[in-house]
Nucleic acid binder design. Structure first.
Length: 306
DNA sequence: ACCAGCTCCTGCTTGC
DNA sequence: TGCAAGCAGGAGCTGG
């Protein structure tokens, strides 16, 4: 699900556990996600303290005290689940089982705690066991996500980041930078904004929402915006991302809570997945349409997005 | 160089 | 109700 606001929501949810925490043990339950996990993945994580948890575009970056950074991308369907160690008596109540057990039947004991396995799910691929008893589980049904370990000092030069575009909530994201990023592109605006080498962090949902908010047609030639239109787009991108973060993202589970509470921004979509609905802009009265651009759905109002 | 389309994977929704 | 096709928030790769 994750576009920038969801990844930022995840970062905020995980930060209290990650930052300053020490990974007592890590589990890789399969050798690969989208790509193979790096060599000695588990060994390089074991015993490491997490110094910081950052976000760059849609990537989560956990800086380790070993000088390496754990790079995590959630792909289309990745999510983290934060589990707290629960005392045995509580676990018994939740699981209804006399002996808390792992999926393979062996007791799952760490320190003085058992874990509530009632939330254990298929597609739990990577697990971080923290020294304080917290556990962070990475789940990803479609397995489009990936993880890598990269020397922190070499992060910028890493192929994943070498060509990455503007950070839309960063200080450098101004009208000049946006104009430069789109300059010369003959691609439709929609496609150009999805291109992570130009602007990094927007996905299909927030591109649709930002273009609606900016009253710009997704079919416009990206390099052909007038200065006032560029400024409108800039403001729209910022506003929609900030509002979404404020709402805890869209649809994505809120990892600060263990009850699966959802983000709320999906209730505020103006166009995304709203084909046929009457446009809410002033007295526009247009109908939200769906089109396909580079193989993906675009939602927009042809009456007021020009 | 740039761009559109295909592809990886699983699961949910839709339409017959 | 059942089943299969179609579609999904990402993005690397291929080929035009």
């Amino acid at each position: 699900m994750p576009e920038l606001p969801e990844v930022e929501t995840v970062r905020r949810g995980l930060a209290p556990t990650f930052v300053g925490g020490r990974i007592a043990r890590a589990e890789a339950r399969r050798p690969d996600l989208r790509f193979p996990l790096p060599e000695r993945f588990v060994g390089r994580l074991t015993g490491r303290r997490v110094e910081d948890l950052r976000r760059r575009a849609k990537y989560l970056l956990a800086d380790l005290d070993s000088g390496e950074t754990l790079v995590m991308h959630l792909g289309m369907s990745g999510s983290f689940r934060l589990e707290r160690a629960v005392a045995e008596v509580v676990d018994l109540g939740v699981s209804g089982s006399a002996t808390p057990a792992t999926a393979n039947g062996a007791p799952d004991v760490l320190g003085d705690f058992y874990y509530d396995r009632s939330k254990a799910a298929a597609h739990d691929h990577v697990v971080f066991h923290f020294e304080n008893g917290a556990r962070v589980v990475y789940n990803d049904p479609r397995r489009f996500g990936y993880m890598d370990l990269v020397a922190t000092s070499a992060l910028e030069a890493h192929p994943l980041f070498a060509d990455i575009g503007l950070e839309p909530l960063g200080a450098g994201f101004d009208a000049t930078a946006l104009s430069m990023a789109l300059q010369g592109s003959r691609a439709p605006l929609k496609a150009a904004l999805l291109d992570q080498r130009r602007i990094a962090g927007l996905g299909n949902i927030y591109v649709c929402e930002a273009l609606y908010r900016a009253r710009l047609s997704p079919m416009r030639e990206a390099g052909g915006l007038k200065p006032a239109e560029t400024r409108r787009l800039l403001r729209a991108i910022r506003e929609v991302l900030e509002a979404a973060i404020e709402a805890g993202g869209s649809t994505l589970r809120d990892h600060r809570q263990t009850d699966g509470t959802l983000g709320y921004f999906q209730h505020r979509f103006a166009v995304y997945d709203r084909e046929g609905v009457v446009c809410g802009h002033k007295r526009c009265g247009g109908i939200i349409a769906r089109a396909v651009q580079s193989g993906r759905s675009t939602f927009y109002c042809s009456a007021c997005q020009l």
